[in-house]
Each structure stands twice: as C-alpha cells, then as structure tokens.
Amino acid sequence: MFVQSVVRARSEVEAAWLVYEGKPATRLIAGGTDLMLQLRRGQRQALALIDLRRSGMDHILENEHAICIGATATVAALAQHPGIRAHFPALHTAAATLASQQIRNLATIGGNICNASPAADLVTPLLAYDAVLRVRRGDDVREVPVDRFFTGPGQHVLTQQDLLVEVVVSKPLPSEGERSRFLKLGFRGAQVIAVVNAAVSLRLRRGLVAETHIALGAVAPTAVRAISAERLLRGEKLTPEAIAAAAEAAVDDISPIDDVRSTAGYRRRVVRNFVRLALEEIAAQVAAETAHGSQRSRSRA
C-alpha cells in the first residue's frame, strides 16, 4: 500500500475537519520520525496522509496556572522553553535527552503521545504531572486525563475522527513545594529507546509527603503509575527506610517483558533502583534547599 495523497492542514480547524471527514486508511503525520519508518517497514499503512506541520498547532503558552502545549510543538521547542524548565523539570529533561537534535527538531509532543509507545520518553513526565489532553472532534473539544489515554502498545482511546490538539500541564503552587525528576536508561546517552524510563513528582507539606506520582515506562503494555509505591509514601517522611520500601513496592506495580532491548528481570532491578535514586535525589534537593534557606535567614538576622 503506497501513500497516494498528502493534504496539508493550514489551521487547527481545518486539521480537525480533515480528520473528522477522513476516509479509511488516512493517517496524521506531524514530525514523521516514527510514521515515516513504520510506513517504509510496512508496520503501519496509509493511503492518504494529513500533514500537520503547518497547521499552526505548535504553540507553547504559559499563564499563571498552566502551560498549554500545542500538539505539533517540537521536542526541541519543549527542551528550550524556560517555563517548562522551571516548573516541569522532568518534562524538560525528557525532551532535552530524547533521541538526537535532528530528531528533536522534527518530533512533536503529539506524535510522541499518539504513537503510544510504552517507552515514549515524554509520557512518563506527563503522567507524573497529571497532564490533560485536549481532543477535538469536528468543533467539539473534550479533555482526557493522560492516565486514561493509553489502552495498550500503540493503542489509545482516540477514534479515526479525533485529533489531539493540546497538552495542558497545571503548575503546582509555590507553596506546594513540588520537586520532580526524570531518569532514563539506554545503551548510550543519546539516540536510544529507553530500556526503562521513570518520572517522579513529589510534594512535601511540613516535612511529610503530601502527594507523589511515580510513572514508569517500558515496563508494562503502557506507561504506568506505581500506585502501591505512591500509597506507601503518602503521609510519610522521606527517610531512607520509606524510600527503600517504596522502591521495593514499585516492582509489584509493573509487568515487564523480555524484548530486544532488555529482559523482564533486569527491568525490575532498574525500576527498583530508579525509584530509589529519584526519591533520594529529591530528598537531597530538599535537604540542600532547607540548609540554604536556614543559612539565608541566619545571615539576614
């Protein structure tokens, strides 16, 4: 099956209606970094493509409460955005270390999500930050929480008529003291699909864990939250014992397999170590900030 036509969408509205009225075997293309290979390898088929590159959906808008990222914003644009760096460091790190500069300049956040790889680097941070996906069908827009978007490897809840238009990440209040981390293991520091990736966000209130999201990639049919590890941490102090218990519990929250990149057993070990490492780094950051803060108040006194 060869691609027989390409239609270039010039606006979000035009893209949404092209998708809504699209014939069978029509696919969306944005960066193309996954789809072009899948088409060549025969892993996915398309007779017609709707090209979103110039659809004007590549905005990154920041306001007081949230950052709204257009579906065709490139991974490079995410990595360069100062607001994302300041408020969502795990998303920043995931974007800045994804593949290579040539891929980051093409690949889009919408593509990374809709390709629905269980190893997608941007998805674990979006899970850790409770991102909301705005989906358009014709003129109707609905919101889908990212943790209800994926249904399996390469599969999600969108129908042929739906278009992902925007990703919304809500900013934590400064008083919520949120910290977060992204960790990725691959065979080298660039150009790799993750053996495991992890994103952890954590909020402390009066020294106790008020909320935490632990998201893990490439260890289940979709990226998953380590629910039982999170439950163990809530209400606790971030002690070495609490961290070790959470890391152990996270292993029960995943269902890894053996594949070309690694084995299930190794992935379990990495998950245990990643959860521990991320939480230790956050605990160290909190300790450093507290020490710095008390030093400052002493010098002011």
Partner: peptide
C-alpha cells in the same frame, strides 16, 4: 533535521 524522515511534500 534528518531528510530521510521528512516527507518531501512537508
């Protein structure tokens, strides 16, 4: 960008 991943039409 990698020109092998970009649609000429794009």
């Amino acid at each position: 960008v990698c020109s092998c991943l970009l649609l000429a039409q794009s």
